[in-house]
Design a protein around this nucleic acid. Structure first.
Length: 868
RNA sequence: GCCCGUGUGGCGGAAUGGUAGACGCUGCAGACUUAAAAUCUGUUGUUCAAAUUGAACGUGUGGGUUCGAGUCCCUCCACGGGCACCA
């Protein structure tokens, strides 16, 4: 046995590079197309080529790679591809700032990031790599677009759009977060523009109901999507106008409160409001004022309720009452029918409005148990919005429960032809036009004579021109002198190309299908056979921030492309895993300026000061790493100092992968120590002759001395535990168990020489089990100890159930449910023997002596409990 | 406001209703060393104690179910996330 201190430290830089090159040259992770194996498609959300890999990527892709390597070892045919979500605004911004062409900038970034990714040793099939800005990719996307157009899933309309004044660009509803652009953060404005829309709403019912079958998705994400689709079931009711033919159709989810209606309100964008404004200057002024106020989404949210009485009245369907009609700023035109009936007693908004304009408030739902002799003076629980109650003041509904009354009144309204059951959704069609250069051109033409005309398939692809100039506001494609001039596919007259490009979320809505293509050069771009073979993605991994946007669009696209006959898949992602963010502490000056960690000095008492000036520093909570908060770490620097394995190990250690990961330099150091610890172990083992043995590894497990026998049994237990942990994606536990196993081996180190065969098995399988997490060092050790082939392509170890069964155990003994000691017993010992032993414990006797034991509980293998 | 999630040592976190704190980080002590680093060993929930053998307390709060609760049920609190004038 040589001295540990004589072992040179692990030379990761040479060894990691060696294996990365080996894997690459030998195509070690090419997709396994052999028949007879079960397929496993694992995909991490692909990367935007910003130019630099950040630590969040590293965590995401490490989690994915561990699963890919684990599944491969378990005998699955794994598809683990990599690609680039490469269109988008930053490329154009860079073009402006650095005078680089977006294309050049993007491909350079991809090249740079590829280097970084390769240095981390991920087991990708690089042969399937592509970028969404590759001509072959977006050309096919144009085909898909035309097919969807022919299926009536795409249309153009004038619409009020979310306009980002900083990016000079339209945003989808999903891209507006708290009234601000998701990328620029600018307050979003409203603007009218002719836009291309994709009819995602055609699939709203399916998108909603299919969520129930997505058992492999986090409940949270399903719920968020469900809320976003926002189905409400209710009833539309026609209110007859007392004057003209200006009947008003309202939508409500609470039709049973109809007898409490005291007014009707319509949206300022309602057709009737616009009609009235023509004749009535006061109304016109009001509408203008309201519109001014609603420039930004943000303002709308904080707005005070405003309304104007139109002078029109409508008939109550069941009562002789006439209800005034208001135009009110809180009524949304895009939802329901753009009109409501106001029930102030049972709706907060209606209550505010009625209070402000002194409209009557009429209670029709009484909380249960509050109706005493019909007398009631207090109205302090108004507005009463709960549906838990009894109907009052409501004619034929009186005395019924809310659900009862609802069914009854819908029946009645339908019967008399005034209303009908109806459903409304929050989900809107997806606006995909972007007034930008660096995106997929929309394959449409505007002809003076024929109108908007789709291109023929053989006119495709519409390629982006490269000679564009940036700098002018607006769309560079529009400024291009020649590009947009073309001929109409129908009449051949001069016509103009559509200069809008597609939202980049379109690009990422089908890329997972493109990865399935086994031989993109020789076959149609979406071979039905390949898709059928690989889809759906068995495990998709990405950030929770895509819970709505990307994941909803991708689900929709899959359904839409199925409807168009391209594929036959209904949900793209069988299992979804959303990993947490990598976070780190933040430091700020009192004036709010962010500080780098190395500008800050932590004093003995724990408080922090700025090194330069000694002024106090505010230590913030852990926040997602971001450049602006100055709390980022650079993956390259870490790989250079500690190696890829240490980093991979660290990002899955300790914290469960779905939770936010608190970065700490000490933790990273700890992982580096562990890497060296196993390296020393491997070297020591090699020195002891452990490894592949001539004539195979043979030993009689029955003949081992007690401590080695113990180690060998534990070893089987660890195989079981580590396998289970990885199957359930509990990488943190797999790492912990791996460390325990290493500790257990170290404890028996002196016996290695005399039990080469046992240790060979244990070390061999330790290497196999560590390999998904720290592949480079394991590959090196595998080779060093003479095992055949690559550990990366070797099988996952199996445990032997025989070694997991134990004959004696240490059984806890409780008195009154409180632990008092433990006894060593035979697993099969009978109750009486166990009780006898347990009662003999002094700590038990101290309590039980002189007392009557009321109950004795014995759960085999678990517990003894005496109740006195 | 509505919906969802989470609360366990100094920290990240373990724990099929059955010995709470595995594993790691930090800290402390020791060995080796001229010294340091590295490495190795021990120790590290709190309080009390005759301090070597012990006891009490302890998983956000208060209650409940159970022989037994971090785990199941109810209440409240705190934090995080999503939605938000959606009728």
């Amino acid at each position: 046995m040589c001295d540990v201190s004589e072992i040179a430290p692990y030379n990761f830089s040479v060894i990691e590079l060696k294996w990365q090159e080996f894997w690459s040259e030998n195509n070690s992770f090419a997709t396994d197309l052999s028949a007879g194996k079960q397929k496993y498609y694992i995909l991490e959300m692909f990367m935007y080529p910003s130019g630099k890999v950040h630590i969040g990527h590293v965590r995401n892709y490490t989690i994915g790679d561990i699963i890919a390597r684990f599944k491969r070892a378990c005998g699955y045919a794994v598809l683990h591809p990599v690609g680039w979500d490469a269109f988008g605004l930053p490329a154009e911004n860079a073009a402006l700032a650095q005078h680089a062409h977006p294309k050049e900038w993007t491909y350079q970034n991809i090249a740079a990031m590829k280097q970084q990714i390769k240095a981390l040793g991920f087991s990708y099939d690089w042969s399937r790599e592509f970028a969404t800005c590759d001509e072959s990719y977006y050309a096919f996307q144009q085909k898909l677009f035309l097919a969807m157009y022919k299926h009536g899933l795409i249309y153009r309309k004038n619409s009020e759009v979310n306009w980002d004044p900083v990016d000079n660009c339209v945003l989808a509803n999903e891209q507006v977060i708290e009234g601000r652009g998701w990328r620029s953060g600018a307050v979003v404005e409203k603007k009218m523009l002719a836009q291309w829309f994709i009819k995602i709403t055609n699939f709203r019912e399916e998108l909603l109901s299919a969520l129930n079958d997505l058992g492999g998705w986090p409940e949270k994400v399903r719920l968020m999507q469900s809320n976003w689709i926002g189905k409400s079931v209710g009833c539309s009711i026609k209110f007859k106008s007392t004057a003209d033919n200006d009947d008003i159709l309202v939508f409500t989810t609470r039709p049973e409160t109809l007898f409490g209606a005291t007014f009707v309100a319509i949206s300022p964008h309602h057709a009737l409001a616009k009609k009235l404004a023509v004749q009535n200057l006061v109304i016109k002024d009001f509408l203008e004022e309201v519109r001014k106020g609603s420039v930004s989404e943000e303002a709308v949210e904080k707005q005070e309720k405003l309304g104007i009485d139109t002078g029109i009245t409508v008939d109550h369907p069941f009562l002789p009452t006439k209800l005034p009609v208001y135009i009110a700023n809180f009524v949304l035109n895009e939802y329901g029918t753009g009109a409501i009936f106001g029930t102030p007693a049972h709706d907060e908004r209606d209550y505010d409005f009625a209070t402000k304009y002194s409209l009557p408030i009429l209670r029709v739902v009484e909380a249960k148990g509050k109706v005493v002799g019909g007398v009631r003076s207090s109205s302090d629980d108004l507005p009463y919005v709960s549906t838990d109650g009894v109907m009052v003041n409501s004619d034929f509904l009186n005395g019924r429960s809310v659900p009862d009354a609802r069914a009854a009144i819908i029946d009645k309204l339908c019967a008399i032809g005034v209303g009908c059951r109806e459903e409304f959704f929050k989900l809107r069609d997806w606006g995909v036009s972007r007034q930008r250069y660096w995106g997929c051109p929309i394959p449409m033409v505007h002809c003076q004579k024929c109108g908007v005309v789709p291109l023929e398939e053989n006119d495709l692809p519409v390629l982006l021109p490269e000679d564009v100039s940036f700098g002018k506001t607006g769309n560079p494609l529009d400024h291009h002198p020649a590009w947009k001039h073309t001929k109409c596919p129908i009449c051949s007259a001069a016509a103009l190309r559509e200069t809008d490009t597609l939202d980049t979320f379109v690009d990422s809505s089908w890329y997972f299908l493109r990865f399935c293509v086994n031989d993109p050069k020789n076959c149609d771009l979406l071979s039905a056979e390949d898709i059928r073979h690989w889809m759906p993605v068995d495990q998709y991994i990405g950030g929770i921030e895509h819970a709505i946007l990307h994941l909803l669009y991708a689900r929709f696209f899959t359904k839409a492309l199925s409807a168009c006959g391209f594929i036959d898949v209904h949900e793209p992602f069988q299992n979804l895993f959303t990993q947490g963010m990598v976070c780190s502490v933040t430091y700020r000056r009192e004036n709010g300026e962010w500080l780098f960690p190395d500008q800050v000095h932590r004093k003995e008492d724990g408080s922090c000061v700025l090194l330069e000036t000694q002024e106090p520093v505010i230590v913030g909570r852990l926040e997602k790493m971001s450049k602006s908060k100055k709390n980022v770490v650079d993956p390259d620097a870490i790989v250079a100092t500690y190696g890829a394995d240490a980093l991979r190990l660290f990002v899955v250690s300790d914290t469960p992968p779905e939770k936010d990961f608190p970065w700490s330099d000490e933790g990273l150091e700890g992982c580096w120590r562990f890497i060296n610890r196993i390296w020393r172990l491997f070297v020591l083992m090699q020195n002891c002759g452990v490894g592949a043995q001539e004539g195979g590894i043979n030993f009689d497990a029955e003949q081992l001395p007690a401590n080695i026998n113990e180690l060998y049994k534990n070893f089987h237990g660890f195989i079981k535990k580590i396998t289970g942990a990885l199957e359930n994606r509990h990488m943190n536990k797999a790492v912990a168990f791996g460390r325990e196993l290493v500790n257990a081996i170290y404890a028996c180190l002196d016996d290695a020489k005399n039990h080469k065969n046992v240790f060979s098995v244990i070390i061999r399988d330790l290497i196999r089990m560590m390999a998904p997490i720290t592949p480079h060092i394991c590959e090196e050790a595998w080779q060093m100890l003479g095992f055949p082939g690559l550990v990366s392509t070797s099988d996952w170890p199996a445990y032997d159930q025989r070694y997991l069964t134990v004959s004696t155990i240490n059984l806890p003994v409780q008195v009154n449910g409180k632990l008092r000691g433990s006894i060593d017993v035979d697993v099969d010992d009978l109750e009486d023997i166990v009780f006898e032993k347990a009662l003999a414990l002094p700590s038990v006797q101290n309590i039980t002596v002189g007392k009557v034991i009321k109950t004795k509980i014995f759960v085999k293998g678990r517990i003894v409990n005496f109740v006195v």
